[in-house]
């Protein structure tokens, strides 16, 4: 059973600058197990940086992130970051599948290396995951032979193979041809329904409306709106959110 009252990620006053540019200006947000959180906002608003801070691909300047009851920010916690990252999957805009490894090896490499799963078990799990996303027949291909949508589905199951407690999606459909967006969103929807905790930075407003429990509107490094899809999309409280939605919704 999923305990939806359990706090999985607690972010407090996160700040991050790139040189003089202040990208995150004090972000605080709690994320519960099973939450599906969509993060929307104009480009350059800090959405992706926020997401990338959660697994420390970007190191925040200040503020704290507590994951599963353990603080991961701060110098003394840097040592255990690899173990923490195993529990936080990430899917990128540009897929970042490993081109020199076959589809199946893309999935089995990290579990075998870092969790010492034996090859047979890792391959069995990978085959099951590939079946789930309709890529089982591609298991022995190299990723260069896959379409964008297929690469992104591979990237998703590669993350799932580590059995993470949450998956971060950083604009997973922005680099896709339009006809491939749906196949990827379908996989993410299935994942959401299965109870996976998800944070997704996206420009797919219809999708955010449909699958999210919570929508965050970020602008200029701050969360300006936080609420259910109805609250944020139907009755935005801030002028900036209204203006943004007017720009992106036809």
């Amino acid at each position: 059973m999923i305990d939806r009252t359990k706090e999985l990620i607690k972010v407090t006053d996160l700040r991050k600058s790139f040189g003089k540019l202040e990208v995150l200006r004090g972000i605080s947000q709690n994320i519960f197990v099973g939450d599906v959180v969509s993060i929307i906002g104009p480009s350059g608003s800090g959405k992706s940086t926020f997401l990338r801070c959660l697994n420390l691909l970007e190191v925040p300047d200040s503020g704290s992130i507590v994951f599963d009851g353990q603080e991961i920010t701060g110098r003394k916690n840097a040592r255990s970051i690899d173990a923490t990252r195993q529990k936080i999957g990430m899917v990128f805009q540009h897929f970042n599948v490993f081109p020199h490894l076959k589809v199946i090896d893309n999935i089995t490499l990290a579990p075998m290396l870092e969790k010492h799963v034996d090859r047979a078990a890792a391959e069995e799990q990978a085959a099951e995951l590939l079946r789930r996303v309709g890529l089982l027949d591609k298991r022995n291909e190299y990723p260069t032979r896959l379409s964008g949508g297929q690469k992104q589905r591979l990237a998703i199951v590669r993350a799932l193979a580590m059995e993470p407690e949450v998956i971060l999606f950083d604009e997973p459909t922005s680099a896709l041809d339009p006809e491939m967006v749906k196949e990827v969103l379908d996989v993410i929807s299935d994942l959401a329904r299965s109870g996976m905790t998800i944070l997704i930075v996206t420009h797919e407003m219809g999708f955010a409306k449909r699958v999210s429990d919570t929508v965050l509107f970020i602008d200029e490094g701050q969360i300006l709106e936080s609420g259910t899809p109805e609250e944020v999309f139907e009755e935005p409280k801030t002028e900036r959110c209204r203006a943004f939605l007017n720009q992106v919704l036809y």
């Binding site: 690899d82 990252r85 195993q86 020199h100 580590m162």
Partner: peptide, 24 residues
């Protein structure tokens, strides 16, 4: 992105270098 993907899976810096970056 290759390094980021490997590290995000929890791969160590060493494994990321030897298994992902160097072969490419």
């Amino acid at each position: 992105g290759q390094t980021e993907a490997a590290r995000s899976l929890g791969m160590t810096a060493r494994h990321t270098m030897t298994r992902i970056v160097l072969p490419q």
